[in-house]
Simulated assay, not measured.
Amino acid sequence: MIEIRIECRSISKGEGKGPVLSTKDPISFLGTVDPETGNIIDPNHELHGKCIKDSILIFPYGKGSTVGSYVLYQLKKNGCAPSGMINIDSEPIVAVGAIISDIPLVDRPNVDIFKVIVEGDEVIVNGSEGYLEITGSK
């Protein structure tokens, strides 16, 4: 059952489903996320101590080194990647990382997702067609 459908821009194709893990802090995958576990290891990040594995990770945009693309790839190879990602405005580091790792990614949602989606909501990200669906709430 679909509760809400939100149109977005498609960045990385595929479909992912899972519980939302959301932050208004940008993410630098190099130094913020442990590629072996998927845990947020930066003590200054809002999600410190949480794991991104199998989540729908919502964050405004990526930052930092281009090596972040390869950290996303390592996360995927290690079975610790998010099921999908949603950005407010994706940039090349996250976009390339999602594409080479086959992680569905959309951006530019047509609503303020931080007001519509809450942590723990079940969401489907469809990167092939450019939308997300909230399928259940906490």
Rank of each mutant, 00 (worst) to 15 (best):
M85R: 06
K76F: 12
E91Q: 05
E91K: 15
V67C: 05
G68A: 10
E46M: 15
S69F: 04
C80Q: 11
P19H: 15
D107N: 09
L132M: 13
P82E: 02
K13F: 08
G64N: 05
E7K: 06
G127V: 00
L47H: 10
R5D: 11
L30Y: 03
T66L: 07
S10N: 04
G84P: 03
V96F: 01
V111T: 11
A95W: 04
E119N: 14
S28K: 14
Q74V: 02
K50H: 09
N126Q: 10
K138M: 06
E129C: 11
D54V: 09
Y61I: 13
K76Y: 10
I88C: 11
G49N: 07
A98D: 06
A95F: 08
V33A: 12
I124H: 07
P109Q: 04
S90Y: 07
G84A: 14
G62E: 04
I134P: 01
A95S: 13
I117S: 00
S10Q: 04
K115R: 13
S28V: 03
L21M: 07
C51D: 07
I40W: 01
P60G: 12
Y61T: 14
E133F: 04
E133I: 05
D102K: 09
C8E: 06
S128F: 07
D25C: 11
G18Q: 02
K17M: 14
V118Q: 14
P60I: 11
S12W: 02
I93A: 01
P43E: 13
L132S: 02
P104V: 06
V96A: 01
P104F: 02
P104H: 09
G130Y: 02
P35G: 03
H48P: 01
N78W: 09
S101I: 00
I93E: 03
S137P: 04
S90Q: 08
R9I: 11
I11M: 13
I52C: 06
P19A: 14
L21F: 11
K13S: 11
I103Y: 00
T66S: 13
I40M: 09
G97C: 09
K138S: 08
I40H: 00
Y70N: 03
V125K: 05
A81W: 01
V71H: 01
Q74A: 04
S12M: 04
V106T: 01
I40S: 00
A98N: 05
K24W: 12
P43D: 13
S12R: 02
N87S: 12
E129N: 14
P109Y: 00
S101E: 01
G38W: 05
P109I: 07
N39L: 09
K115V: 15
I58H: 04
P43V: 06
L47N: 05
S65L: 00
E119F: 10
V123M: 05
L72A: 07
V118H: 13
D107P: 01
